[in-house]
Nucleic acid binder design. Structure first.
Lengths: 179, 179
DNA sequence: TATTTTTGTGAGTGATTACTCACTTTTATG
DNA sequence: CATAAAAGTGAGTAATCACTCACAAAAATA
């Protein structure tokens, strides 16, 4: 791993644990095993570092959320597919989600990263809307928002206390409701 | 309004807008029209001020969430009642919710306020579980968690962009689903 | 009225922290 | 090999900010 990558992963963990504002760049540098100056050489400023992390995470999500252009899949299957994928992402990228949710309401991110986040969300909702429509739901747009909100909230509550939250059971329940 | 109240309401607004970490006590004092020292005289430290605000907000919520001990109401009605009340709270205390969600993931609140928040949540979920059970749902605990999460997320998404979010329509949709 | 308690002030302080910069080392390139 | 470019360092800096404290005014109490 390059120093740049070391910085990114150290910052991801620290931001996720402590929050952006409560994590000094000095601590990131220490954890990454580099000098503090290097952070600014690579990312310009602290916000730039955060942006790079979010960009990286969003790319992962966007990738794993690509819809099949396979016409063989039914809209209902596509919806269930989306649910399964969401829960998988939740489990596989816990640290990133923790960071994302921590940072979500902070003014600091009113930059490119926030815009990108919005775009990914809009893309997902649009996709869901289409599928709900094809599946014959009377209010596909609202249904899409509802499911999106539901998954979002489950992520939130799961992250708040991963060891005690009944994630598997919730996944089944949601799957059944839309399957 | 006393100076103490002035401080509380100024801080509520500023914390909700800018976040706790990004709001200097000097700014709160200026907005409240008092000296900075007075904040510390009344609340000990900045965290104490936050705690007082949250305590205040939670009292409001807890009050408005008191269950009827009226046995005349059916469990299904009680659930719908809860939904209606939640949406009402959302609209009536937008600023507090914005603060609460901003602060939710910050380590700073690992104090009495966080514990109280947990208690209110647990109380709500327990109540819902009971009603889902009486209403004959096979997995009342999970159903309660699901509805709780759903409302939580709708609040979140509504707060993110109040003017564009279809809150009324969502309320209807949720009400219908459980009515 | 005299005295104690509460409320209020604001200049000052020490600690923290994001960022700079002059410089060195390493890597790439002609 | 020579030179340029990129990567890396760490001491230093200016700004911010939570909090203190000596003191004053107001309010409560006796």
């Amino acid at each position: 791993m390059s120093n740049k990558e070391n910085i990114l992963s150290a910052a991801l963990e620290l931001f996720a644990e402590q929050g952006y504002d409560r994590t000094p760049t000095s601590q990131i540098a220490r954890k990454a095993g580099v000098s503090e100056g290097l952070i600014f050489r690579h990312f310009g400023n602290k916000a730039g570092l955060l942006e790079a992390i979010i960009r990286q995470g969003l790319a992962l999500i966007a990738e794993s959320m690509q819809p099949y252009d396979d016409a063989a899949i039914t809209p209902r299957e596509a919806i269930v597919q989306h649910i399964e994928r969401s829960f998988r992402l939740m489990r596989d990228h816990e640290t990133f989600w923790r960071l994302a949710h921590k940072v979500r309401f902070q003014a600091a991110v009113q930059d490119v990263a926030a815009v990108q986040m919005e775009q990914v969300n809009a893309f997902i909702v649009t996709n869901l809307t289409e599928n709900f429509e094809k599946a014959g739901y009377p209010q596909p747009q609202l249904e899409a928002l509802l499911l999106f909100a539901l998954i979002d909230a489950i992520t939130l509550h799961y992250l708040a206390d991963p060891s005690r939250y009944p994630l598997d059971a919730m996944q089944s329940l949601v799957r059944e409701r839309y399957g």
